[in-house]
Design a binder for these strands. Structure first.
Length: 611
DNA sequence: ATAGGGTTAG
């Protein structure tokens, strides 16, 4: 059966089926089967495809590899991978086409190990992969985090001269992105740089890869290159959506606004995903007002689950628990069904605002009303919710009642609570678990050590310090940064490398007097070492957040809001000091620490000292 | 037939 593709339109199924209505004795050509299988590919015609398969078996058809490939594709399109597999393995002389179709099937339905198996088999038969093989194989590699296998595949693609293909190159970038970690910028960028032709997808993959792995400045730099260079590739809405999180990571509000403008001018800001990314960016950059504005500007029917989640999480991180709750309720009103992320946001919102009973009620309703599975992170939120409120025993009971193993985030919440309420017993218990669960996290050592120091237990402090040395844990140095005129200025604790160091320290030296005049008593319990009171006071005054704020005070006009970001949790003494600074200098100061935002104004903080 | 995506507790 033949038709002329050029002159006649696509044949109808009735035409294709004609050979099958002839007498049973008339042989049917495999090509006829192939044509029909191909047109039955797709979910709606799956039943008919199955019948045809049965028909062919009754007729004693021995499928050629070509026909098998069509059948594999047909079964794959309806998700029947077992049948596709059976056909593949029962075909005696597989061809590259058949390999490609089964690889595609396995890869799309996340039978990732099978994909790699078949790829290996393919090579053992001396078939080389082609432009349609590699993207699927690389996706499976990425799904499995088999980075070593991935590097081999990369090597093969180089050997076979396929690495210059845009699709394969982009798949390689994405594979290194998904396997992420510290090597990603090198490995992905190498592929990217050597691609002879890059299209919008390659650029966007690279940018979003940087952003996803926390390399914010690289993402922003590449985005700039894309905008300014007279290359023919320009950002589209996916690029915008991918680069915005990089602004969020680095609290680059100016950059974020610039990108927002760029998108608006080119009409790239109308897609709901871009708008959601904008909400998230503004929230992470400390401008909740802008985030709210973007969210409310979204058409209500375009607000999907992710958009609602973003807004709920935004309120939660800014300590507005009640608003998070209200947003959650309107989401339900709008008929959007919550998921696990909704509840992490909601519960952490309740936690930051001390809405303990409301939070507990939502936690209980997760399964019963919303049929959302309670996962480990939700238990972590509830432990935090109870712990922050000082209900340490109940928090511990929750941990005991968990259906899964309690991990680092759960014990971490309990440790933070124990520290907050100076409960050495609970803290030791949690810390002991954490030393095993995440021995590389210096924060746990520091917290417990501080508590020992506070209680005057210097032997234990020394013991911990030795333990730290023994395990070669590197202390995570605290740093803070502030954006002035679109440029970020970074400070380490006790930093003296900045060109304005003199002025900064001068300002900080005057501070204690000014603060004491309005009733400030330094709390030295946050200093780690066994040193004199005076020395402690000094080391506190040079915490990085204070340096950044002093720098901000010096370099902005009166009344400007200061936005500072810190890589660790803000220290209690600094928290107190910043409250005074906001009063003395009449400034609104927004500090983002690892956990949440603090809005300081008029001598008090939005967290109500509940953090 | 192939490649990129916004939201996750402390």
């Amino acid at each position: 059966m033949k038709w002329d593709l050029q002159s006649s339109p696509k044949p109808t199924i009735t035409t294709l089926l004609q050979p099958f209505f002839k007498s049973p004795q008339t042989p049917i050509q495999p090509s006829s089967y192939a044509a029909v299988f191909q047109s039955f590919t797709g979910k709606t015609l799956f039943k008919q495809g199955q019948q045809l398969h049965a028909h062919s078996l009754l007729r004693g058809l021995r499928p050629t590899a070509f026909l098998a490939a069509k059948m594999v594709a047909m079964y794959a399109s309806s998700g029947d991978i077992p049948s596709a597999t059976r056909i593949f393995y029962s075909t005696p002389n597989p061809t590259p086409l058949l390999f490609n179709s089964i690889i595609r099937a396995f890869s799309l339905y996340k039978f990732s190990e099978e994909t790699l198996n078949v790829f290996a088999q393919m090579h053992s038969l001396s078939f080389r992969g082609d432009y349609f093989t590699y993207p699927f194989v690389l996706k499976s590699v990425a799904d499995l985090y088999f980075i070593h296998f991935g590097r081999c595949v990369h090597g093969l693609s180089v050997k076979d001269w396929l690495v210059f293909d845009v699709y394969i190159g982009t798949s390689l970038i994405d594979m290194y992105v998904k396997n992420g970690e510290w090597a990603m910028p090198v490995e992905s960028k190498e592929v990217f740089d050597e691609m002879p032709q890059k299209n919008i997808v390659s650029w966007t993959s690279m940018i979003s890869g940087y952003a996803q792995n926390g390399f914010a400045s690289d993402a922003l730099q590449l985005f700039d290159e894309m905008c300014t260079k007279d290359s023919e590739v320009k950002p589209n809405w996916v690029t915008i959506m991918s680069v915005l999180p990089a602004c969020g990571i680095s609290s680059a509000l100016h950059r974020g606004k610039k990108i927002h403008n760029y998108a608006r001018e080119r009409g790239l800001d109308s897609h709901p995903s871009v708008q959601t990314a904008l909400v998230g960016m503004y929230a992470k950059c400390g401008s909740l007002a802008d985030a709210k504005w973007c969210f409310e500007r979204m058409k209500p029917n375009l607000r999907n689950l992710v958009a609602w989640n973003t807004m709920i999480t935004a309120y939660a991180s800014h300590g507005l628990g009640m608003e998070a709750v209200q947003t959650f309720e309107s989401m339900i009103q709008f008929g959007v069904h919550p998921d696990g992320i909704t509840f992490t946001g909601l519960l952490s919102g309740c936690s930051h605002s001390g809405l303990v009973d409301i939070g507990l009620r939502y936690f209980d309703s997760m399964n019963s009303i919303y049929s959302v599975e309670k996962k480990h992170e939700h238990y972590a939120c509830v432990v935090d919710l109870l712990g922050r409120a000082g209900r340490l025993v109940e928090a511990y009971d929750i941990i005991s009642s968990m259906p899964m193993h309690a991990g680092a985030s759960v014990w971490g919440s309990l440790l933070a609570a124990g520290r907050c309420y100076r409960n050495l017993e609970i803290s030791e218990l949690a810390a002991r678990k954490l030393f095993i669960l995440e021995p590389e996290n210096s924060g746990n050592f520091v917290i417990l050590s501080n508590m020992y120091a506070e209680a005057g237990m210097w032997e234990e402090v020394n013991y911990l310090r030795d333990l730290l040395k023994l395990q070669r844990v590197k202390k995570n140095p605290g740093c803070s940064w502030i954006e002035i005129n679109g440029k970020a200025h970074l400070f380490l604790g006790g930093d003296a490398s900045h060109e304005q160091t003199k002025e900064i320290y001068l300002l900080l030296e005057e501070l204690p007097e000014k603060m004491k005049a309005v009733g400030y008593v330094p709390d030295t319990s946050f200093a780690l070492h066994d040193v004199s009171e005076e020395e402690k006071e000094y080391s506190l005054s040079t915490h990085s957040e204070k340096l950044a704020i002093a720098f901000g005070l010096l370099n902005t006009s009166p009344g400007t809001v200061l936005r500072v970001t810190k890589n660790l949790r803000i220290c209690g003494d600094c928290h107190t000091a910043i409250k005074f600074i906001s009063k003395i200098y009449e400034r609104e100061i927004v500090v983002r620490d690892v956990n949440r935002f603090h809005h300081f104004k008029d001598g008090s903080c939005s967290c109500g000292d509940y953090w």
